[in-house]
Amino acid sequence: MANVTTPIKAEARDLNFFYSNGARALKGISMPLYENKITALIGPSGCGKSTFLRCFNRMHDLYPGNKYQGQIVMHPDNTNVLDAGVDPIEVRMRISMVFQKPNPFPKSIYENVAYGLRVRGENNKRIMDDKVEEALKGAALWNEVKDRLHDLAFNLSGGQQQRLCIARALATDPEIMLFDEPTSALDPIATANIEELMVELRSKLTILVVTHNMQQAARVSDYTAYMYLGELIEYNDTDKIFTTPSRKETEDYITGKFG
């Protein structure tokens, strides 16, 4: 499938995941994420795509009783982010996340973007100002908010709030950014903005995006993985998945016979 020269940024190896009630939500998933590419996860509700995404930044650690099995290895340092000896906080500093619904803090626009830096102990105002500006520019929000950085984030529109959340995730220079259905709460125009932004961000980092919307996967992603009932059914170039899928299940899903 992928071009042999494309470097791998991270790689799931035989990943299983169990919720605290014992349910096995992921079944032996192995797949690479290619560097500076967008990988989309598609599949019907409950197929485990969000669960898979949330393994990458150890979000499941926040709730007791959840269990990982297998590895997610980051390159080039070969760190297994699921290793019990690796602090989830360290992982989240390298892999940031944008959520389904825009979830800005009830703080100013500036403070929202700066929070990731503050958490790291950054106090220098000059550095902070620069990073905030850079992140807001990176999230294509700077021109709209530069004159009101100290307004409350809640005063922004939904699409602006989501771009603010992207800026917040961007401010700390992560290597990978996870998007969990980032446009499902947005109108079509805001959605188009976010999609355009994701494509732009690709040059800076590696992106993994869960989407409920197949057209979105087709529009933005380089690679697409189709998941069903916790299993990875097919993973390939997005073009191939949508034109000549090799598995019958994938074809049924993308042609709308199922799901």
């Binding site: 989240r92 959520f99 979830n103 958490v119």
Partner: peptide, 23 residues
């Protein structure tokens, strides 16, 4: 306080105490 706000804070690498105190 909604779960989404906590997850947002944890998501940028905050410790538990930072989440509790800042948010």
């Amino acid at each position: 306080i909604p779960v989404s706000i906590r997850e947002a804070a944890y998501g940028v690498g905050a410790t538990k105490w930072q989440v509790v105190y800042d948010h």
